[in-house]
Simulated scan of single mutants.
Amino acid sequence: MENEIKYFSLEEVAKNDGKNGNKTWIIVKDNVYDVTDYVDDHPGGGELVLEWAGKESTKAFDDAGHSGDAKKELKQYKIGELREEDRKQKQKKKETDKAKEDRRSFCSYLTCGLC
């Protein structure tokens, strides 16, 4: 059953922060990657990877403007996915942010007078 997906908690990922002999794991788009063997080969320098070790790094990864080749290369380091419960925490935050935005839009509508 090599195709069985392994699931990791945020806490498990956080322990793999690349410090004190720990492995170097990152989360990108709910996927968990063990980039321990890649840190020294990263074109931007290993310190950039280590800055996000043990953390959710999707925004940083996307903001860096990685090429399609870099995204393909990342796939070989995938060891599993973030467990559903931890994904929901992020989803709840997104829903909360959306609700705040909706309230602002509604308040703008009420105070505008031109709508």
Results as ranks from 00 to 15, higher is better:
Tyr38His: 03
Lys59Met: 04
Val49Met: 14
Ala70Ile: 04
Glu81Lys: 15
His42Phe: 11
Ala53Gln: 07
Phe106Ser: 10
Gly54Pro: 03
Thr36Val: 09
Asp69Asn: 05
Asp62Pro: 00
Ala70Met: 11
Lys78Ile: 00
Glu101Ser: 15
Ala64Val: 02
Arg87Gly: 08
Lys94Leu: 13
Val39Thr: 02
His42Val: 07
Lys55Trp: 05
Gly80Gln: 01
Lys71Tyr: 06
Arg83Trp: 15
Leu48Asp: 14
Val32Thr: 01
Glu47Ile: 10
Lys88Val: 11
Gln91Phe: 11
Asp41Tyr: 06
Thr36Gln: 10
Leu74Met: 10
Asp62Lys: 12
Val35Asn: 02
Tyr33Leu: 02
Lys88Glu: 15
Asp97Asn: 13
Asp69Gln: 13
Lys55Asp: 09
Asp40Ser: 13
Lys92Gln: 10
Lys93Thr: 08
Asp102Gln: 13
Asp40Ala: 12
Tyr77Glu: 00
Ser105Arg: 15
Lys93Pro: 00
Val39Arg: 02
Thr36Tyr: 09
Glu81Gly: 10
Lys71Asp: 14
Gln76Ile: 09
Asp30Glu: 11
Ile26Asp: 02
Asn31Pro: 00
Lys71Gly: 02
Ser67Ala: 08
Glu47Ser: 14
Glu47Pro: 00
Asn31Phe: 01
Leu74Asp: 11
Lys90Met: 06
Thr36Ile: 10
Asp34Gln: 01
Gly44Asn: 11
Leu48Glu: 14
Lys90Asp: 02
Ser57Trp: 03
Gln89Arg: 15
Glu73Asp: 15
Asp102Gly: 08
His66Val: 05
His42Pro: 13
Asn31Val: 03
Lys72Ile: 09
Cys107Ala: 14
Lys90His: 05
Ala70Thr: 03
Arg103Asp: 13
Asp86Ile: 02
Tyr38Trp: 10
Tyr38Met: 09
Asp69Arg: 03
Lys90Phe: 01
Gly45Lys: 03
Gly54Leu: 07
Leu50Gly: 04
Glu84Ser: 09
Asn31Cys: 05
Leu50Arg: 10
Lys55Gln: 15
His66Thr: 03
Asp63Asn: 09
Lys29Glu: 12
Lys71Ser: 07
Ala60Pro: 08
Gly68Tyr: 01
Glu73Pro: 15
Thr58Ile: 05
Asp40Trp: 00
Lys78Glu: 06
Pro43Lys: 07
Gln89Pro: 00
Gln76Thr: 12
Glu101Gly: 13
Lys98Asp: 11
Pro43His: 09
Gln89Gly: 06
Asp63Thr: 07
Glu81Ser: 13
Arg104His: 10
Ala99Trp: 11
Pro43Asn: 05
Phe106Glu: 13
Arg103Tyr: 14
Gln89Ala: 15
Asp86Met: 03
Ala60Arg: 04
Glu95Gly: 01
Gln76Asp: 05
Phe61Cys: 06
Ile27Phe: 07
Ala70Tyr: 07
Arg103Ser: 12
Tyr77Val: 01
Ala53Cys: 03
Pro43Phe: 08
Val39Phe: 06
Lys90Trp: 00
Asp97Val: 08
Gly65His: 02
Val28Cys: 02
Gly80Ala: 00
Glu73Thr: 06
Gly65Arg: 01
Gln91Thr: 14
Glu73Ala: 13
Val39Trp: 05
Thr36Phe: 09
Gly54Arg: 02
Tyr33Phe: 05
Thr36Asn: 05
Gly44Thr: 05
Phe61Lys: 04
Glu51Met: 12
Lys78Ser: 04
Leu82Arg: 08
Glu81Met: 13
Gly45His: 04
Arg83His: 00
Gly68Ala: 10
Ile26Glu: 05
Trp52Met: 13
Asp86Trp: 06
Lys94Phe: 11
Ser57Asn: 04
